[in-house]
Write a protein that binds this DNA or RNA. Structure first.
Lengths: 192, 192
DNA sequence: CTTTTACATCAACAAGTGTTGATATAAATA
DNA sequence: TATTTATATCAACACTTGTTGATGTAAAAG
């Protein structure tokens, strides 16, 4: 809106991009300042500390995923359609905010206690919810009778790295087509 | 064998474990020394520099993957069996050397130029080889006619994070069963 | 006009970083 | 026994890190 938020927005963009390239620990406040064409001290106009930047953005994007899966979980969708909805939301969010999703996937290890434990608990909760959907699908016979743990793990792994397709501007991907391809991969595999 | 190699082996174990926990940048030479119950300067008996440690172990484990896929590529296996062999080798290596595989997956960003470019080139080469196998499978009709790029991407994503199952001693996984489960997931998906 | 707010610059700090050199000791080797 | 080798300790270096404080300026708000 006003100039303040525009400058802060630019700061966030630059920070997330740098963190994606060089990692959280590898990105210095001076790196960010240089990219913003300003002094180091100036960066602290936009954020309280480097750690606070990580925590804010991490839990913000993490919250979006949790909100989504909670809505999906209580919906009247079938298990298969719930899984499709998870894939769909994941791709939508990743295509719109790739660097924040990348932050979530790559940099949570840099959180410090006790916040790290809080994050891991929430992460576990997310996985539990996916697991419960798959379990329901297996029990009702619409999904194969495979190892529940590995099914959950494999499903999540298949979508967790999609941000690579969007952080690289060279790769232009159609989200709708991607959604279909990934859903088909998870549900049907690659064999004809 | 002798005491020298035993001590160096212990140093490597400790280093890889610490790097897995705290990241490469987050692990200091003093951290490693503390874990080894010795002085910082002592660490340099085992390695020339922190960067050299990363490079050595990274290219060592990376080389194992390349050697494997090269052998698979020139084999007389069918495309499907080639993919199965890739999964099989990946799981075997991951179960035996989980922390090194984790290093390869998580820490390559910390390489410096020009070595980083060299690594990325090799990484691209590996992906190209997987892509060529899938392409052959699609062309011959044994694999579904899905997007080649996404199929390659999804297949690799499904196996790239298996080290999480082995770096955590709480999770004991049977490699043989895991291999079957992952192969089935990739080939058949999860739908009944 | 006055006062607050946003933003900029410069210098500096305390702590932590990888790494080296000098030196001592015990073990292995010759 | 003499000598090399592996390992240990201690101190110190040059540098980078996140962060703060003092100070100035220009714009917005009252």
């Amino acid at each position: 809106m006003n100039v303040v938020n525009l400058k802060r927005k630019r700061f966030l963009e630059v920070s997330l991009k740098l963190i994606h390239e060089k990692g959280f620990k590898g990105t210095t406040m001076r790196d960010i300042a240089t990219q913003l064409n300003c002094d180091v001290a100036n960066v602290y106009n936009y954020v309280d500390s480097k750690q606070a930047l990580l925590e804010e953005k991490l839990f913000e994007i993490s919250g979006a995923f949790h909100e989504s899966i909670n809505n999906i979980l209580i919906s009247s969708y079938s298990p298969v359609d719930k899984l499709k909805a998870i894939v769909s939301f994941h791709i939508q969010l990743t295509s719109r905010r790739p660097f924040e999703v990348a932050l979530l996937v790559n940099e949570w290890r840099n959180l410090k206690e006790p916040i790290l434990s809080k994050f891991l608990e929430e992460k576990g909760g997310y996985e539990d919810k996916v697991r419960s959907i798959i379990k329901e699908g297996i029990n009702s016979g619409v999904l194969r009778d495979m190892d529940l743990e590995i099914a959950t793990f494999a499903m999540l792994s298949s979508i967790r790295w999609l941000h690579d397709k969007y952080t690289d501007p060279a790769k232009t991907v159609n989200p709708i087509e991607l959604e279909k391809q990934i859903s088909d991969f998870i549900l049907e595999g690659i064999r004809a």
